[in-house]
Design a protein around this nucleic acid. Structure first.
Length: 318
DNA sequence: ACTATTTCCTGGATGC
DNA sequence: TGCATCCAGGAAATAG
């Protein structure tokens, strides 16, 4: 299940592989759940866009796109037909260039030569639980639950596969996507304290709230609370400044260590090269119910908080 | 403005 | 062996 370290790993891998590549055509499956923006809007935005960068924002993967204001018209548009595409799948055809969002001739600030500008946009992918972005050869078998295929100028395909369909695809046509919350690895201590100190909700739930911090999921919430010695059910408002400061550091440590190890491979997570991460070997509480605490040998407890399973050591965490 | 609860999804695990 | 049931999880929607 991709959280911040996994998404960071995936985004870095994708950046290496597809930065500078150009989307030649787009195929979207007929299932509506993974699409947050209208299908036509996604297809139109992606089609014939150059990928300038791939980066992570919270748990989102953001593709920065650029499209020439006046793309050359093409005679024939190749249609992409995956081997197992069902007949109800829709093939979205590229709209002719020069549609509403194409920018036009703009004077330079110097007031001199007018020139063409490129339109900026973004493709935003949330992997949910089981979403994957795969870069592969076109002839490789299209797996079940493939919801999007981008054919790239390099000849490869970028595919979005998500069996459980908790993942989401959307576009920001103006290129100004901004996720809620602050980045846990960038936030400063004062801000961190302000975010949590007066919350009445359990600290575990507060850590998972993407409107406060973005990118923390169940694994890293549990692991950072263990390192900080705080029980997940503690109301944030009851936690001392000193303890919150400890959590602040513990969270950054956990996330940085996990990124260094390529994330945690639980269930079926693999990075964009199909490789597993290794941080699951460093988990001290997550997924270790009834196993002895690595510090004091007390059996790890599992409770449900806000519908999320939460793991902690009853002796080390107060 | 907050907080708590429900809902969406399918594959894998478990139980009988 | 086969069938039913449960569970995992993030975030949006809903309710209080």
């Amino acid at each position: 299940m991709p959280e911040l370290p996994e998404v960071e790993t995936i985004a870095r891998g994708l950046a290496k592989r597809v930065t500078g590549d150009v989307v030649e055509s787009v195929w979207l499956g007929q299932k509506k759940e993974p699409l947050k923006s209208p299908a036509t809007e996604i297809a139109e935005t992606l089609d014939h866009s150059r990928i300038l960068a791939v980066r992570r924002m919270g748990k989102h993967i953001v593709f920065d796109l650029e499209r020439a204001a006046r793309a050359p018209l093409r005679q024939a548009q190749g249609r992409l037909s995956p081997a197992n595409a069902r007949k109800s799948d829709r093939v979205l055809k590229r709209k002719a260039a020069g549609s509403a969002r194409a920018s036009s001739v703009v004077p330079t600030e110097a007031g001199g030569n007018a020139r063409l500008t490129n339109t900026k946009a973004q493709w935003i992918v949330h992997l949910g639980m089981t979403g994957r972005l795969l870069v592969c050869e076109p002839q490789s078998e299209v797996p079940k639950h493939t919801h999007a295929i981008l054919k790239l100028a390099s000849g490869r395909e970028l595919r979005f596969v998500d069996p459980r369909r908790f993942g989401r695809l959307s576009v920001a046509k103006s290129g100004d996507f901004d996720a809620t919350g602050v980045e846990p690895l960038e936030v400063e201590l004062d801000r961190f304290l302000t975010l949590f100190h007066d919350r009445k909700t359990p600290i575990k739930s507060a850590l998972l709230n993407q409107k406060l911090l973005r990118g923390v999921g169940n694994i890293y919430a549990d692991e950072s609370l263990f390192r900080a010695g705080i029980r997940p059910r503690r109301r944030a408002v009851t936690i001392t400044r000193e303890q919150l400061s400890k959590l602040f550091l513990a969270l950054k440590d956990v996330l940085n260590e996990a990124i260094a190890l390529g994330g945690s491979s639980v269930s079926d997570y693999v990075n964009s090269d199909g490789e597993e991460g290794f941080f699951q070997l460093q988990h001290r509480v997550y997924g270790r119910e009834a196993e002895p605490c690595l510090v004091c040998k007390t059996p790890i407890k599992r409770v449900v908080i806000g519908g999320r399973s939460s793991h902690y050591c009853p002796k080390c965490q107060k």
